[in-house]
Amino acid sequence: MELLDLIEGRRFMGREFVVWLWFESEMQETNLHPTGADPVSMWLEAQITLVLEKEESRLKGAIPASSPEAKEALRQGKLPKEAKMRLVHGEREYAWTLKADSLALSGLKLPTQLKKNDEKHEVFYERMMLLEDLETSLSALYADFVRLRLADPWDDEIVPLMKNWAHGEKADAGAYLATKRAVLGEKRKRKK
């Protein structure tokens, strides 16, 4: 694919990634296991903006993604353009806003231990180490999403489950996890 098409023609994948993270987080009660990275807890919080063309729903609250309005927006065909997120990796806790169309992070708060008066290079290295720690988790989650999104079961098995979830019906978490394991496990085997 040409670079321009890869960038502009595939922006929708970012919105689908956020909705998949949201679904994944609810299916697994926030305990995510990205392939090749440590397990993390992750959820959407505080604010989410869903859009369909020029129509926009901006929802705020403790966990707006679990509000009926958020699922209603999904049922109307809207997808998240921007969402506040929190991720916990061991003792480290990160919070930021993800812009879906570019995968860019805003207002990222790092769990730094050093203070601004500490040696400036050490402060910088700590910040970069924490940033890389978060990005490792996010990259692994994005890789899992892409593998699932490009596999045959996405349309046949996963999307129907996500529709059930969006419509407030029972989404079979066991069936979803089995499909996910099959796709990602197969990829791992092929890589070996």
Binding site: M1, L3, D5, L6, I7, G9, R10, R11, F12, M13, G14, F17, A100, D101, S102, L103, A104, S139, Y142, A143, V146, R147, L150, A151, R190
Partner: peptide, 21 residues
Amino acid sequence: PESPGTAADRLGLDAKEARAM
């Protein structure tokens, strides 16, 4: 620039995934 498309492409898609993409 990183974007959903370039980030996916950077994963090293196999031929089937590249066709799907």
